[in-house]
């Protein structure tokens, strides 16, 4: 099912449009993409994933479980405590960024992003 050579990335976003954009951009850059529609789904996908993704990209503003809660939950899981997590958000204010970082986010990308920015970010944490 998975392409052994490819770096696997989990993306978590409630917008199907963004999921599509992420899938396309990362897919074209040669990544193996798995996806979850909100924090809860993201956790489910993460725990079932084999192989485990090498990086996670998550939106912040989501229903059910938002990005902050998701990051917190992932960091609490022993097996995933060191997976790089990149937040994807249009929020430009520092408060949200620092909150995400305090919870364990590795980095962030401000929306709107383009494919290069995205791939740069992933390479940055999976080098």
């Amino acid at each position: 099912m998975t392409d052994g050579d490819k770096v696997r990335v989990l993306t978590v976003d409630d917008s199907r449009t963004m999921q599509g954009v992420l899938r396309k951009a990362l897919g074209e850059a040669g990544y193996d993409v798995i996806q979850g529609g909100d924090g809860v789904e993201g956790l489910e996908v993460l725990q079932q994933a084999d192989p485990v993704p090498q990086a996670i990209i998550t939106d912040i503003n989501m229903p059910r479980m938002d990005g902050f809660q998701f990051i917190e939950a992932v960091r609490k899981l022993e097996a995933f405590s060191s997976i790089p997590i990149i937040c994807l958000t249009t929020e430009t204010d520092e408060e949200k960024k620092s909150r995400a970082r305090a919870l364990g986010a590795t980095g962030w990308i401000a929306k709107p992003f383009n494919a290069e920015k995205l791939v740069w970010a992933i390479r940055r944490v999976t080098a």
Binding site: D14, T17, M18, T90, K111, P112
Partner: peptide
């Protein structure tokens, strides 16, 4: 939050 998210998602998608 839901109201905000709706507009936010439209904006995010449109930007792409």
């Amino acid at each position: 939050n839901a109201i905000f998210r709706a507009v936010h998602s439209i904006k995010g998608g449109a930007a792409s």
